[in-house]
Design a protein around this nucleic acid. Structure first.
Lengths: 353, 353
DNA sequence: TTGTAAGCGTTATCAA
DNA sequence: TTGATAACGCTTACAA
């Protein structure tokens, strides 16, 4: 069933059918009605490949995330897919992991699918900002189609970034905690991305502005998973145990960690800290205050519930899709950088200010 | 940059370039090398639409989920996307919500994109099994391309289902709990889908086989969200409070719920029950045992951690993609139904048997 | 082993 | 307002 079948059944040419299909106004109402009826009855739908061949696009947007099973990413994709669909775009989803090479590959893959635009979700795509070539593949992709980053920032022609003001959020919450008397902050992060660096900078600047020197030993990198974080903290805060000489030679004896507040760049790690506190018999928030990031469903699952910074993900997605749509509608003059606010959601792991 | 450019630069015909591209063995090594080098250098990639027009497919699979922000769905999509990509398929993701009409629409949408197969994730696509027309749109889609269901079951030509043996899982855990002396089970579910019905059937059959009559008042439908569940349980177990005469007239006074075990068809509700227990000052698992389903990350976030039934999602995804690939490779003789096992992950909300 | 040419199903440009 | 026809870029008989 193709356009020729419809045309012959309706007794018109394929051009007329095509016009009806594309809502051209240069078709008489009678003809339009007749054609529409036949299309309806036969259940005909245009062949998308032929359509794409002709006009070069099929209204599809590529969405790339490092890991869709991550709560934050899953939420992002949920928002994006719905918003895009509402505007008539379909979503091609791909996951890239965190390796540079596979990110490049996946971007290439999506480009080869002739998507109209690319949305990269997660600060991992911003790189650490040290080596500009780290994000070269994004700039090269942007020569072909607009690239939109969510929660990440890359400079370049045709590249549009939407981020949460992580620096300000971290500065603010750190200052609040300092105001409540805390001095030794454990800072937990799972990546060295742009966003993670911003968060750390906000945190450390707040410390410095309060006359506290950030202690590198209290800045830890961990996987964003509950049990590993709990276990590492238990291990590194315990008294040194004898035995275990089997380890590598450079295992210099580390001083046990001492801290009175924990700030994590993601809820997963923060919940790990909550578990650590429970295992140590610490009472939250009196003995220890803990703050997470992303306000995910984990934050209401743990006990006590986790105070977390909400980075207004839905707003980021909305703004991004809005600008994407405007761009594809012909207005290429969209803001290169959108920086949104944030919201502290106070729950049981912090005291009220 | 198209196949003609490559052909002329290499001094061959487009047919030869096409052969090189498609790995035909009827090309001399020398020619192949020359063509490949030019392709490499120019960064040429075939136009996917033209390719699709020619052969009718572009190796894409449509994945439909009701809600990608659900932990279970997100994990499913993560597995599926990776497995599909490993076999050379790209993933078109769509979300449908839970309404019949939008499910139909989205299936149509994916069909119109000419995907090679459809994967529907979640028991919502199986319907409740009452009205066969409820799943008619799936059977109609299956006339065009194979449809694979994960965690749902629909009978029909070209429809392949992969499910967890929810009935057996629920029968087993219920029997265990009965063996530990429980008699009054609160059964929580968030849907009336096939899977939910199977779970309930397993649960109730176990009760009956132990001589316990299932109490309909203890079978509750709730949203799969922590706080709403907690609050409803608190409300329905409390002493009747005065006032609130404003409600509807048919608000017959319900007896407060009494139960000594909770079984939920998803972790979200189970964690809600954990929260309820905490609010009531109940000690888990001594005063109350709770079992969730899906073994999601929520189960390790709450305190005490939640015993949950693991439905072997990764295996379901693997089997599904395997059969899908076999089917698309020409072997249409795949098992219509695959029923996998399950695993009880015991944590702090149950006693050890 | 290579080339020629038909066909895939649209859209869009001209003419009529 | 309509119709003929040329792209669009590829795959694949069939010929050479």
């Amino acid at each position: 069933m193709n356009i020729y079948d419809i045309a012959s059944q309706a007794g018109v040419s394929i051009a007329t059918v095509s016009r009806v299909l594309n809502g051209s106004d240069k078709v008489s109402p009678r003809t339009r009605a007749r054609v529409l009826e036949i299309i309806e009855r036969s259940g005909y739908t245009p062949n998308i490949f032929a359509q794409g061949l002709g006009i070069g696009t099929i209204h599809a947007v590529g969405i790339l995330v490092p890991d869709i099973s991550d709560l934050f990413m899953a939420d992002s994709v949920a928002f994006l897919e719905r918003l895009l669909r509402a505007r008539g775009y379909s979503s091609l989803l791909a996951t890239s992991g965190f390796e540079r090479e596979s990110k490049e590959q996946q971007v290439q893959m999506l480009l080869s699918k002739k998507v109209d635009a690319l949305i990269l979700v997660g600060s991992t795509y911003a790189g650490a900002g040290v080596d500009p070539e780290e994000t070269g593949y994004i700039r090269r992709a942007a020569e072909q189609i607009p690239v939109f980053l969510i929660n990440g920032q890359v400079e370049g022609e045709n590249i549009f970034s939407c981020v949460c003001d992580d620096y300000a959020a971290m500065y603010s919450i750190t200052s609040q905690l300092i105001g409540r008397g805390h001095r030794r902050f454990l800072f937990l992060t799972d990546s060295g991305s742009y966003s993670a660096l911003q968060k750390r900078a906000g945190h450390e600047d707040a410390l410095r502005d309060a006359g506290i020197t950030p202690d590198p030993a209290l800045s830890l990198r961990m996987p964003n998973r509950i049990h590993p974080v709990r276990d590492q903290l238990l291990e590194r805060t315990s008294e040194r145990t004898p035995g275990d000489v089997s380890g590598s030679a450079d295992a210099s004896p580390e001083a046990p960690l001492r801290f009175d507040a924990v700030i994590a760049t993601d809820d997963g790690m923060a919940v790990g800290a909550v578990k650590y506190a429970a295992a140590r018999g610490l009472h939250l928030p009196d003995d220890l205050e803990i703050v997470g990031y992303n306000n995910s469903s984990l934050s209401v699952a743990c006990e006590p519930e986790l105070t977390s910074i909400d980075n207004l993900l839905s707003e980021m997605c909305e703004k991004t899709v809005h600008h994407l749509h405007e761009y594809l509608s012909g207005d290429h003059d969209q803001p290169r950088q959108v920086r949104l606010g944030w919201r502290l959601v106070e729950r049981g792991t912090t005291k009220r200010s």
